[in-house]
Design a protein around this nucleic acid. Sequence first.
DNA 1: AAAGGATACCTTGATTATCTATGTATAATA
DNA 2: TATTATACATAGATAATCAAGGTATCCTTT
Lengths: 114, 114
Amino acid sequence: MKISKELSKGSTGMIVLSVISRSEMYGYQIIKTVEMMSENVFQMNEGTLYPILHALEKEDYLTSRWVESEENGRKRKYYKITEKGIKELASQKQEWETYSTAVGKVLTGELQTI
Amino acid sequence: MKISKELSKGSTGMIVLSVISRSEMYGYQIIKTVEMMSENVFQMNEGTLYPILHALEKEDYLTSRWVESEENGRKRKYYKITEKGIKELASQKQEWETYSTAVGKVLTGELQTI
DNA sequence: AAAGGATACCTTGATTATCTATGTATAATA
DNA sequence: TATTATACATAGATAATCAAGGTATCCTTT
């Protein structure tokens, strides 16, 4: 990810699940899609993405299949979300909501200090 | 932090700077304050906090002093934010804003896929 | 008086997410 | 012909956090 430091750790799997949940995609396309949707805030690199895809598949959140491109003969590995993945995504979104709301509360100092 | 997984990685330093920016505090108090302000979402453990405090001090974002408590004789190490720390906090808040907004965009799918 | 829990500091070693670098290969462009 | 973009992948390094352990004092309950 481009966003400096370690801020995005932990959310990358959710981001990947999220974009795949809208349409079957291959790895390189995921990178470009996330880049575009985040307006270049997230610039995932391949060394990050591929291990995540493999892990998500191992957990049965995704399935994959090889597809030969029609324009060029290039092979692409398409990933599709599973039912289990859809549930996991919903759970992770909920957790993200809880987390980001909590950060907001601390940053804005809604409550008083002890 | 209590929030499961690794979601909060990278934001802990900012959280600490943020609570200290409102008043001088000692370590244990920081943990309790963050717990309260986040409504128990963040349950920082000591093994996380103390190394962070030392690192922030080393970077001159904080200064510390030992204070003997008046109620009981217990010694506490109070941390105070510096000018440099205030600037750093502002920068990290800005980054958090960019990051969380980007996550929101990807999750809600504001734009279309390629 | 003893025991346990809360307070208060700290460090070490393990875990894990991500990055950097590297590798392979093809297609399109300059 | 050389470079860039596409497309997959892995290995080793880095770094944030956690789990566990250590020391010590104070307060409350038994």
